[in-house]
């Protein structure tokens, strides 16, 4: 669904749901996940349906993930860091 138009020059390594992934330094967790073709970021606590980023600017809170054990992090507002463990937020935190 999404592709990189530029090569990764300064790689950062992280995991999503335990799976090793690579990103470009300086980009957001959300951009890194989308570029890695992650479909759903979370399941809603109300109906359990899958959601993914909608606004990419900190407004909609659809991209909430758990980062290094901390839930409710806005993936679109958080810079990716080496060694981050990112997981889907399933329902309520």
């Amino acid at each position: 669904m999404y592709t990189r138009s530029e090569p990764v020059t300064t790689p950062v390594h992280f995991t999503f749901e335990g799976r090793p992934m690579q990103a470009q330094a300086g980009e957001t967790v959300a951009a890194a996940l989308l570029a890695g073709n992650v479909g759903a970021f979370r399941d809603t606590p109300v109906s359990g349906t899958a959601r993914a980023p909608y606004c990419m600017m900190g407004t909609c809170f659809e991209c909430l993930v758990t980062i290094d054990g901390r839930p409710n992090r806005q993936a679109c507002m958080t810079e990716i860091r080496e060694g981050m463990a990112v997981t889907r937020q399933k329902g309520a935190a």
């Binding site: 999404y2 138009s5 530029e6 470009q24 980009e27 951009a31 909608y54």
Partner: peptide, 12 residues
């Protein structure tokens, strides 16, 4: 959002 992805990460 699509434009922000392009600006901030070159992701299309």
């Amino acid at each position: 959002a699509l434009q922000i992805l392009m600006k901030s990460a070159g992701v299309l």
